[in-house]
């Protein structure tokens, strides 16, 4: 199986949950479909969705809840 990086398209603050009291969008090891939301980037008072680029399994997250990320930074790996 090939690995594919999930890249943040915008700079901002990364979140794995839709809101602080809700569970994460996906756990590591969970299967996702292409286009499925796996996290959010807070930017300019708004939230920008981070989506899976392909069907597969989330192998690992490379950014933690609340991390500041740059545009182009790897956020997760999908296998």
């Amino acid at each position: 199986m090939s690995e594919q990086a999930v890249i943040s398209e915008v700079p901002g603050v990364f979140y794995r949950k839709p809101s602080p009291d809700e569970p994460v969008y996906v756990e590591e090891g969970q299967k996702v479909k292409a286009g499925e939301t796996i996290g959010l980037i807070e930017v300019m008072k708004n939230f920008y969705e981070v989506t899976a680029p392909a069907d597969g399994t989330v192998k690992a997250f490379k950014a933690e809840e609340g991390d500041v990320v740059d545009a182009g930074q790897e956020i997760a790996v999908i296998e």
Partner: peptide
């Protein structure tokens, strides 16, 4: 032609 952009550096 299609104009697009890479991630902001």
């Amino acid at each position: 032609d299609v104009l697009s952009f890479d991630f902001v550096k």
